[in-house]
Design a binder for these strands. Structure first.
Lengths: 250, 250
DNA sequence: CTGAAAGCGCTTACAG
DNA sequence: CTGAAAGCGCTTACAG
């Protein structure tokens, strides 16, 4: 009943023998893919139950090409902001029978490329990516030549023709800044996250648009990272206190 | 060059044809598992490079029984405390060529069992588990009959003969409480996390041991969850303010 | 409705 | 050193 190669899982053959049917029949009962007469069906079900059989998903994947595996690539696995987005997807896809490979690449473009390769080797069926920076030509090339299904989340590589899900960063920051100006603030400091990420660029664009439209000239842009610590450090460097500080951080 | 079943990945056969060798030779070059004469070796390497070949990990897994996949089961994927532990393991195992399936079970025992089943089906080679509560008989039974390699992290099921990595909760809380008593505090409120988890029990034990040893009788234990919010709510319920509040939370 | 057979893409004894 | 063949555990045409 135990087998080293398969983590001790019983295989379809042993179920078939135990039930006195062919493996085809066992497969049909499991997947409900063709009708099987009641008699055999119950024998198979009993055997499955008795042996504690669970189908080997690796073999199934190889055969069907469907791994039921989705890969996530995010900048930092310990940042709750990213994990909340992952959880949203997880709650939905778990019900569809998918499992997840979540990988952090520590904001590293090289690591990002390595992860893409690793996840492709694992034959993930789809990939959700919050990318590391402004561009990554290796990543782009590999992804495009692989025909993997993929979607960007929160940040994207703009030169790639890949679907993207994210908030309207530019509009959000513009509205925030409009609001501050409407309330009488006239001098600004803007704190930006990693300057080459799409989200940082879009947010800055919204801020700039607002101050320009209102003819504000007293503003300064500071670049840091998408962390609380970075916001703290940047503000400590301030020479003079502005009317308002706008944070385009995470 | 593209193939629907394999996400567009080139297979070993096409590499072999392109290089004019057998697939055995391609495999040997890739895995460096047997010597191959220079001439063939370079032809294979060129073919691999040119076609952008990456071996299908699913097929390799089925053959070798080694999926290079480690599963994590943690109570909540959005809680940084758990993710920091995951990251520690990740940093190490990534260098060994392993990928990760991280799953949150929302503190649900039923979900925990489902995840175990799913991860076994995916043929993970090992499992790292921070468990949901004090016991889960389905979980125990499935795990034990599967011979999966497994280790508990931070919390464990005490009735299982499985390795466990965690801090010495009892000793820690005892020292904290000793310290407070030494500094003159005489009345205590103890805030506990989910009362049936091993970590909550151990911590409470350390606290109790300390107060008993010092003959302190003015203490009260309150049960909540391992969250900041829970700590807040519990303290709001306090009728009178003690000398010290001891938090056995995360 | 059922079973025997082919095949998914690899690795690895086996024979030469 | 190399290739042809078996086999990992499934699914799915194919024949009956």
């Amino acid at each position: 009943m135990k087998n080293k190669r398969t983590n001790g899982l019983v295989n379809i053959k042993s179920v078939a023998q135990h039930a006195g049917v062919s493996i085809s029949t066992v497969s049909r009962v499991m997947n409900n893919t063709q009708s099987v007469i009641e008699e055999l069906r119950t024998r198979v079900k009993n055997a499955i139950e008795k042996l504690g059989y669970h189908p080997n998903q690796v073999a199934r994947s190889l055969r069907t090409g469907s791994t039921k595996l989705i890969g996530f690539i995010i900048p930092d696995i310990t940042n709750p902001a990213f994990l909340l987005m992952v959880k949203g997807a997880e709650d939905f896809l778990k019900r569809k029978g998918y499992a997840f490979i979540v990988c952090g690449m520590d904001h590293s473009t090289r690591e990002e490329t390595k992860l893409l390769r690793a996840l492709l080797s694992q034959s993930v069926e789809g990939l959700i990516v919050t990318c590391s920076g402004g561009q990554n030509s290796d990543f782009t090339q590999i992804a495009e030549s692989s025909s993997i299904r993929m979607v960007f989340m929160d940040r994207r590589y703009e030169n790639m023709n890949i679907p993207y899900v994210g908030v309207d960063n530019a509009d959000g920051l513009q509205k925030i800044t409009d609001y501050l100006i409407k309330n009488g603030h006239r001098s600004f400091v803007y704190l930006s996250g990693e300057r080459n990420t799409s989200s940082a660029k879009e947010r800055l664009r919204g801020f700039i648009k607002s101050v320009k439209e209102h003819g504000i000239e007293d503003f300064q842009v500071m670049y840091g990272k998408f962390t609380f610590e970075s916001g703290y450090e940047l503000t400590r460097k301030l020479k003079k206190i502005p009317d308002a500080i706008v944070g385009g951080l995470e």
